[in-house]
């Protein structure tokens, strides 16, 4: 028999460690989604699709700007010392993913804005002719367009990776300590972004491409999930315990049913049928993918906080 009693009872720490609530998973999800959107949008620009009529690569950045702002609001709401938030931008801490993240977000905004003004919707263009002017000048320069596309892809990639790195560097939480977490979050972000754009893309060829790409992302995601769990199982004792949280522990049901089942496998099959024209394209699969991606963030954040190095009971002796 092994009994460990710890007398501490700090708020948010004991008996269950929960410093991070709903805000962080929302932020991580939106961050990943925006990252995916930037990569896709950047790819559309670089691949010349932006020249086609109604290419979604001009709507996407505007929507992304809104989403990342919601995400940052969630992040801000999570801060306990809100009035000091400006401290993020008085320094750069190279060892801190969160510092990187703060600066990356600062990079994301101008890139998304540049991307958005390349082609401004008519109604806005009428009201803000000067913006239209800048946009037209920019889009007239091929090189500038390419740079914007590339920067969009690069910064989207960094943003997507960072959402995973943020968690995986926190050594104290075994369920986060996978070097593959950033890949999972990046691919999951791409998958959610593909699904999301699929919902409002006007062009049939784009929708088809996005569905195909999403299928690829989903397959990759499934493989990464498997690799992460195998990694945990073949690692230290605390990481074995972390794997068990997903395999048969408190997070197993929601993980297998909502994240893997309804968030990856089922939409994968639906979309496989759709791209092979067995069934019609419907918003069902993309919505499932997005919800699955959101739940994935909740499960990972929550399970990570649940996992730890101590396994004490909290009673007064």
């Amino acid at each position: 028999m092994h009994e460990l009693i710890i007398t501490r009872s700090n708020h948010l720490i004991d008996p269950i460690f929960t410093p991070w609530g709903w805000e962080i998973p929302i932020y991580l999800f939106l961050g990943g989604l925006v990252a995916g959107m930037m990569i896709i949008s950047g790819y559309f620009i670089l691949s010349g699709r932006h020249q086609k009529k109604d290419c979604s690569c001009f709507v996407v950045p505007t929507v992304a700007l809104a989403l990342i702002s919601i995400g940052m609001t969630a992040l801000f709401l999570d801060l306990e010392h809100k009035l000091y938030v400006w401290r993020l931008y008085t320094t750069f801490q190279w060892t801190s993913p969160m510092s990187w993240g703060a600066w990356i977000l600062l990079l994301v905004y101008p890139i998304l804005t540049l991307n958005a003004i390349l082609k401004i919707p008519e109604n806005i263009a009428k009201k803000l002719p000067w913006l239209k002017n800048i946009g037209e000048k920019l889009s007239g320069r091929k090189f500038a367009v390419k740079v914007i596309g590339a920067m969009s892809m690069i910064s989207g990639g960094i943003l997507g990776m960072y959402t995973g790195v943020l968690l995986s560097t926190l050594v104290a939480r075994p369920a986060w300590n996978s070097s593959m977490l950033w890949i999972l979050f990046l691919v999951s972000g791409l998958s959610a972004a593909a699904a999301f754009i699929h919902l409002f893309a006007k062009r049939e060829d784009e929708r088809r491409l996005l569905a195909k790409a999403d299928n690829g992302f989903l397959i990759a995601e499934l493989m990464i999930v498997a690799l992460i769990i195998i990694g945990f199982l073949t690692s230290s004792e605390v990481q074995n315990a972390a794997a068990m949280l997903f395999i048969n522990g408190p997070y197993a049901a929601v993980f297998w049913v909502f994240v893997v089942g309804l968030g990856m496998v089922v939409p994968l099959f639906i979309q496989l049928f759709a791209v092979n024209d067995k069934i019609q394209h419907t918003p069902i699969a993309p919505i499932m993918v997005m919800v699955g991606g959101l739940i994935l963030r909740f499960v990972i954040v929550s399970a990570g906080q649940y996992s730890g190095w101590f396994t004490g009971t909290f009673t007064t002796p």
Partner: peptide, 15 residues
């Protein structure tokens, strides 16, 4: 200087 992001709280194996 602390913004209360709690990353450090999450990073400490000793809680």
């Amino acid at each position: 200087k602390c913004i209360g992001c709690k990353a450090c709280v999450a990073s400490c194996p000793y809680d």
